[in-house]
Write a protein that binds this DNA or RNA. Sequence first.
DNA 1: TTGAAAGCGATACCAG
DNA 2: CTGGTATCGCTTTCAA
Lengths: 340, 340
Amino acid sequence: MVTIKELAEILGISRGTVDRVLHNRGKVSPEIREKVLAKAKELNYQPNRAGLMLALRKQPRRIGALVTSVGNPFFDPVIEGMKMATSEYEDIGFSLALAEVKGFDRSTHLEAIKHLVEDEKCDALVLATIDDRMITDYLANLTLPVIAVNSDISLPSKLCYVGPDYYAKGALHAGLLALAGEKKRRILILRGSEAMKGHGDIVRGFTDTLVKKGIDATIAGEYDTSDDNELSERIVREKTAEDETINTLFITTAGVSGAVKGAAGRNLLIFTSDDVPETKNLIRSGRIKWTICQEPFRQGFESVRRMQSWFIDGIKPENLCTQHIVKLTENIDSEYLSSI
Amino acid sequence: MVTIKELAEILGISRGTVDRVLHNRGKVSPEIREKVLAKAKELNYQPNRAGLMLALRKQPRRIGALVTSVGNPFFDPVIEGMKMATSEYEDIGFSLALAEVKGFDRSTHLEAIKHLVEDEKCDALVLATIDDRMITDYLANLTLPVIAVNSDISLPSKLCYVGPDYYAKGALHAGLLALAGEKKRRILILRGSEAMKGHGDIVRGFTDTLVKKGIDATIAGEYDTSDDNELSERIVREKTAEDETINTLFITTAGVSGAVKGAAGRNLLIFTSDDVPETKNLIRSGRIKWTICQEPFRQGFESVRRMQSWFIDGIKPENLCTQHIVKLTENIDSEYLSSI
DNA sequence: TTGAAAGCGATACCAG
DNA sequence: CTGGTATCGCTTTCAA
């Protein structure tokens, strides 16, 4: 509750000097430095956010965000969240530069990131990108703060990760499958690109947990559908024709409607991940039994907000693991866009 | 992006006058008033939050909160959320007065609320209370802003409600029960006090949905356990002895460990609401198959935060329906205290 | 190396 | 009814 001004008065020095000590800028004599630090600690000095924000607007900050939203409606609420967080602080000089790309090609991603840094002159990066050396090496050589959102990257200097634990998500799918009965399972899996580590983690979490729980299940096959509906449809149709024992379909990627079409006429238990519009109707009708969402709005909101806090009060943000929200017919229509 | 100062300069009048117009306080000549409003709209004037906050600390605000937390660990994270929201803005003069009571006795609640208003001199109320005329009549005669949290109240003047849709929660339980197999169900229900409307709504949502989905299920009985473990245990033991066809136990209240003890030796499918510590171990071990949580931390955080926003920028907050989080063994240990 | 002062946006109060 | 001014906490810049 003590302010810089009060601290200065108590110590009989000027506010400027106290400020210089507390922020390690400029030269201050060691004795005064010690005295200030001691007193600040004693009186538990905490900077006032309002004052901080007011002074901060002199140096506008641009936050660059990369999302693989092209052709993937999952990212729509993520972007909404980012914009919402930006609008809360735009009057103190924060702005958002959005780079939207399609898929997981590393050159495309690198190019988009370079655009944010070089053309948009961003002061910070919030990235939903792939964990590739070409990209992390480039980022490691920048001095910009980076937050990973939705999919984590191996960058020691990153501030934090905001997004789901994909392995746990796969495990939860297995838990639901166990709940759904002791029937013998033969499972066909449609998954997303290997380039994005999370896609593999979901499947691993799923299969590991099936084994751990001793569930009577086997995997009939695991295919990357490249988020393509026609490909998904063909795979499901062919595989279920080849192997009549397949009774379960696990779709962890886009291309859901194609896959479901391919399963027409067959009595499969189907479950998916996320509640993109394509999925919603199929959950409502009961054709898809459940889906597990991952708070996309919050991912966007929190990633940008954490970057803002980093600039405002310099506290290194902690990782945020978003919740896994199980959705059935009964709750598919509840709001995903919580108004925070 | 335009400020009051700029507005004043453009119009050739003082900042004080602009301020008076924009806040409807003090007297201003109609012509000037019109001019100011027109210009403000034209230039899309938005108050700057930093400036607002800085000026606001001159009038400290005390927010009074009532929670039925005594003997009910569900409210622990709610309180944490309230404290977290308070700490974010305490440097601009917000403080929290917490009144903790046990159970749903209306006189106890009214007394606690009066204490907040009269003794603690609170400027606003955030209440987890019962929807009783004695209480709402008292509140209606106050001029303080009120937000209902966790359980809604019939108070026309309340700003908003933050908490779950209990009926939907019951429906989701029914959805999960349907997922768990087509077995014929005979269900024993343990529920909380009628005084709290939500308790009844859960059961209604549950039974309505069982019927709607055409599930082969009957209710063996529905009992208020008063959150008491010994009573729960006795009821479960007696009822399951009387009626050997009972194969399902739905516990929507505290006293979970007692109820589970009473079910010892019997092969019941058990499910509950919320993940209080008492429940956690039983979910881990698989004795309880699932529980549905309701973001308690967020309820506390958002209710207080909404009240703060009401004071800071005067925007009437919207209702917030918290999500229903299905928890199985696989995700019972993921964090409930999301750091927002 | 340190002090003093201006400025950020909004409010409150005192004069006129 | 209106204008002017001090104030809030912090940063930054200019002098000393």
